[in-house]
Simulated scan of single mutants.
Amino acid sequence: MTDTGTDAKQGSYVTAGSEFTRDTDYITTRITATGAGQDEYPVEADRYRLVVARACPWANRAVIVRRLLGLESVISMGMCGPTHDERSWTFDLDPDGVDPVLGIPRLQDAYFARFPDYPRGITVPAMVDVPTGAVVTNDYRQMTLDFSTEWTAHHRDGAPDLYPEALREEIDEVARRNYTEVNNGVYRCGFAGSQESYDAAYDRLFTRLDWLSDRLRDRRYLVGDTITQADVFLFTTLARFDAVYHGHFKCNRSKLSEMPVLWAYARDLFQTPGFGDTTDFVQIRQHYYIVHSDINPTQIVPKGPDLANWWTAHHREQLGGRPFGDGTPPPPPVQAERVPADHAAPQG
């Protein structure tokens, strides 16, 4: 089976007897500082729109990085709803179901504006060129790295260095292993088409989570003493673990809240501006339990788990580290981009 897990693509996610394989053939066009390379667009303020869905962990990464770096004033953001049909993510949260900047009801319209016969899944996040209405890239990993390295002229004062040059090799290696075993590993569990493939994915997932617990036992962050892209990449999976992956994807050896080190690490990040305030638990549950009807045919969305414990003390500051290095926390999100209070973890 080949699919992206959070794209809009006709057909079942689970194929009996097969192992889940993610389609990683993304649009590799980049937006760079000069735009001088082949198949590159130039960095320009107010030219591009980042289209996301809060439910999607890959899109959530881009939302967090954009906010930490202060790119809200130069890259606008369009938000799709938590569910999609077999054709496309849709702008059903907007008045009349149309994105107010791009003027389209479906994200597929931006893909087709550049590739009329685009054959693959319509994925978020996607950067769209507003003047032409055409998608530029949906390569979520490179997109967030480019936010750090190519958009520096537009970073806010006090923006953290999420991808420090001296640590990039280690960040890339840690993030690569986390992707194969954890970020994508939960999907390989959930969309496994055989007992054998599920068992293998399950064992690989929890072996890596145990490794991460050991690594983070005496260090606050994954690489170095500040938040990096590696932490952002891992956080969006951990934030969904108890709400979705533990039950819906059968990743049920332990809840995140039963893994003390990872649970404290996740709470530390969640309570850091830019992380928890971009996490919409209602949309997360709606997406997985409604869209994946082959796993959850009733499409009943669970009410739990209780979210208040995300705000309990984590004591990770005792390990040292400086979340933003020499930088500063981002300001509160603008009103239009705030997660509704009834979709967020309640503070005591």
Rank of each mutant, 00 (worst) to 15 (best):
A45Y: 07
V182N: 04
F275H: 00
V291N: 11
F191Y: 14
H343C: 01
F249N: 08
A36G: 15
G103T: 09
F281A: 00
R176H: 13
V74D: 04
R22S: 12
S148W: 01
T152M: 13
Y265T: 03
K9Q: 12
R322I: 13
Q195I: 11
Y111H: 03
V339F: 00
D157H: 12
W89L: 05
I227R: 02
H84R: 15
P57N: 14
W263Q: 05
L262S: 09
R220I: 11
S254Q: 11
R220M: 10
L238R: 02
E181D: 14
F206N: 03
D231K: 01
F112N: 08
F235P: 08
T4G: 08
G274H: 00
A36W: 05
V136N: 03
Y245E: 08
Y245C: 14
V261G: 06
E40H: 09
Y111P: 04
W89D: 02
A16Y: 07
L269F: 04
E169H: 12
P42T: 13
T312L: 13
L162H: 10
P160E: 04
E170N: 07
D225N: 14
I300F: 06
A201I: 13
V52E: 00
R215C: 08
W311F: 10
G348V: 11
D7Y: 10
R120N: 12
D268L: 09
G37M: 06
L50V: 06
F270I: 03
A55N: 00
Y245H: 14
E169V: 14
A16C: 06
D109M: 11
N138F: 08
S88V: 10
W310F: 15
G327D: 04
Q299N: 07
V244P: 04
Y179F: 13
F112T: 08
R285P: 08
I122W: 04
P57V: 10
G320M: 01
A159G: 09
R220A: 09
G133R: 07
A341I: 03
T312H: 13
A341P: 02
P273Q: 03
N138D: 15
R253Y: 13
S76V: 00
P330A: 00
A175V: 12
G97A: 05
G121W: 07
E72C: 07
A344Q: 00
I122P: 02
H248M: 15
W151M: 06
W89H: 07
Q38M: 10
